[in-house]
Amino acid sequence: MIKHIVNVLMLLTIALAFLWVPSADILGHSSRIIYFHVPVAWVSVLAFIVSGVLSIIYLKDRDGKYRLLEERAHASASIGLAFTILTIISGSIWAKISWGSFWNWDPRERTIVVLFLIYIAYFVLRSALADNPDRRKISSAYMIFTMVVMPLFIFVIPRMYDTLHPDTIINTQRKIKMALEMRMVLLLGVVSFTLLYVYLYKISTKILFMKKTIEERSDE
């Protein structure tokens, strides 16, 4: 069901982004990247938050009521890492088109690199703890720790310094400086990519449960 909704919404996003929305002032047609770059960046943050929330539930769930929570957090982090890499790549190409160079160490670029490094550190920590009985607890604790500090990096620090990125939706003037059509298609893009993330997460969870079933059968 989700697969079909994602297909329809993605087609709609592509169609509207190229056929309906006017191009922005100054940026011109390159502004159409925003309807894909921003949702991908949003999913990289969303996956991180979901991973953190699952880690919290894992640490609180002493009775083992929910199965494979830490593994599901890991699956969400994998998707988040993939989307972070895509954000960096799409952002770099757009930066070359708009600002003339692939990488400028703009505050937003720095914070997405920090998010990327946090993901990498999480995977390195988890693989270093491969034979450790406390692996799940320690990696969950790290994910929660970084999830709590991450909003400062993603949402606060980029607003403290001058940036090449355009003004965000949450800004000091409390005004959304975006035409209505652009806002609508951006929102549609965000919803489409969020549903795509949900779909990918569901497949990853299915894989986890299949692996668990195979392990249990081989133990028997």
């Binding site: 920090v114 270093a128 450790n132 406390d134 604790a141 720790f145 400062l152």
Partner: peptide
């Protein structure tokens, strides 16, 4: 966390660097 993970020095640098970079 690193102490519980086996105390490898390079692991500490890897996990702390993203948090300390900003």
């Amino acid at each position: 966390m690193v102490a519980k993970a086996g105390g490898r020095g390079s692991l500490f640098t890897i996990i702390s660097f993203p948090v300390l970079l900003p």
